[in-house]
Computed example of a mutant assay.
Amino acid sequence: MEALLSEFTFLSDQALQDKNFDPSRIEDLMKLFEVESYKAWAAMELEQQKEVEEAEEAMQEAEDYLDSVMESAMDEFRRFEEELDKMEKAEMDSLVETAEKARKMGNVMEKAASIASKKYIESAVNSATASMKSAWKGLSSGKVHPS
Rank of each mutant, 00 (worst) to 15 (best):
S147A: 07
S68N: 09
E34H: 14
S94A: 11
V52D: 05
M105L: 08
A55K: 13
E36G: 03
E36L: 03
F10V: 03
L11H: 01
M70T: 11
L11G: 00
M92K: 12
A113E: 13
S114D: 12
E56L: 15
E83V: 00
K50E: 09
M59G: 02
A116F: 13
E82Y: 02
T129P: 01
M132Y: 15
S127Q: 14
E97M: 04
L5W: 05
V69I: 06
M105T: 15
Q14M: 06
A128T: 12
E81I: 01
A99W: 01
D18A: 02
E56S: 13
M74D: 02
K86C: 05
F21T: 01
D28V: 13
A15R: 07
E2F: 03
A58M: 04
V96N: 02
L16E: 15
A116Q: 09
S147P: 00
F21G: 01
E45Y: 05
D22Q: 05
S94R: 09
G106E: 11
Y120N: 14
E57R: 13
E7P: 00
Q60T: 11
D75K: 06
A102M: 14
S24T: 15
A73W: 01
I121R: 13
Y65A: 14
E110H: 10
E45L: 09
M92E: 08
E82W: 02
S37I: 09
L32M: 10
S114E: 11
S123W: 06
V108N: 05
M109G: 03
R79N: 06
L5I: 06
M1Y: 11
E83W: 00
K19F: 04
S94N: 07
V108I: 10
A130W: 05
W136R: 15
